[in-house]
Computed example of a mutant assay.
Amino acid sequence: MDGRRGLVLLVVVAVAVAGSAAVTGAFATFQQPTGDEVLDEVEQRYESADSITSTATVTVENESASTTATVELAADDENRTRMVVERNGETVRAGSNGTVAWYVGPNRSAAWPVDSLESQAGEQWTGADGEYGETDERLSPDGTPLNASNASATLVGTPTVDDTSTYEVELTHPEREGSTTLWVTQDDYRVVRAVATDGTNRTVVAVESTVFDVSIHDSTFDPPTDRVALTTVDRYDSFDAAQSETELSLPRHDATFSEAMVTVRQGETIVGQRYVDDGANVTVLSTTADERLDRLTENATERTVDGQTVHVATAEDRAIAVWRNDGVTTAVVVEGSTDRAVEIADELYSDS
């Protein structure tokens, strides 16, 4: 008998003796998906949904502390989201209706046009030499780009979680400490559990419910208008452009202008100008809301500049000079000594 045919015959006989149950189990093991294939199915499942609601319990712990929060999430395919987080008796709500992003917490509430947030996010992902590149690049904790294509996904088991058969997939990255493990249902690729470690903290997400393609009322995504006032943020690359868009009379530093940002919320205006002066950054803040700058003058000393009282303080490697005149509070923040801050304050106040 030919050796190859003999081997095939022995395999057939062995399968017949073992029985059909053994055959089913053998082929089930052989046909298990890879970790990457499971992640692809998860991505397609969530991205193809018209809407999704989910509830989870999130626990973050390390050697010295632990905290737990419940999270409720709603999202749809029109880039509208809403999240409610409850922790230690306090509730935080945040979301976006596609036009306005909003936040409501125990001590603070705010809303911003989505366009302004997207422009700022785009700048944060831009390096000195331009865009970091393709969308598979992300930032590591130390600020360097991470290439998501270098991450590895490994199917490490098929355990049962709450009477549900799952795929257990571990994700690691060669440039990042720790790992993330996902438990994904085998029948419809829902994530039911996730555990992430970073060398210090361990985060556990226990997903209690996930519903796809559910009807969500439009009002779910709108900010609570009784507590949230819209904040507008506009950026300008010249002093004249910034000055033309605000009623405040802006001081102008005799240095290289870099950019300005005008923020308006609840009738209050804050204008931040940034200059480069002999290689050092200088920031000039002007606002009608004096309480916004109160924290800058904690533990400050008083100096007199051209007859005006100026509060001077330091914070890390920066010096701050703050004064108020005609209902407008102005602050100078410099990389350097308090004398340098006072010198610039003198220049700006004298020219006002």
Rank of each mutant, 00 (worst) to 15 (best):
T256W: 07
T256V: 13
T256K: 15
F257M: 04
F257P: 03
F257I: 08
S258V: 14
S258W: 08
E259S: 13
E259D: 14
A260R: 00
A260N: 00
A260L: 05
M261T: 12
M261Q: 13
V262E: 01
V262Q: 02
V262Y: 02
T263L: 13
T263G: 00
V264W: 08
R265D: 08
R265T: 15
R265S: 15
Q266F: 09
G267S: 11
G267C: 12
G267E: 10
G267L: 09
E268L: 10
E268I: 07
T269C: 11
T269H: 11
I270Y: 10
I270S: 14
V271H: 04
V271M: 08
G272S: 07
Q273T: 08
Q273N: 09
Q273F: 03
Q273K: 06
R274K: 05
Y275V: 04
Y275M: 03
V276M: 11
V276L: 05
V276S: 10
V276D: 14
V276H: 07
D277W: 03
D277T: 01
D278S: 08
D278T: 05
D278N: 07
G279K: 09
G279F: 04
G279Y: 04
A280V: 12
A280D: 09
A280G: 07
A280L: 06
N281L: 06
N281Q: 07
N281V: 12
V282F: 01
V282T: 01
V282H: 00
V282W: 00
V282K: 00
T283M: 12
T283I: 08
T283E: 13
V284A: 03
V284K: 05
L285W: 10
L285K: 02
L285D: 01
L285R: 05
S286E: 12
T288D: 15
A289K: 15
A289I: 02
D290K: 15
D290L: 05
E291A: 13
R292D: 11
R292L: 12
R292V: 08
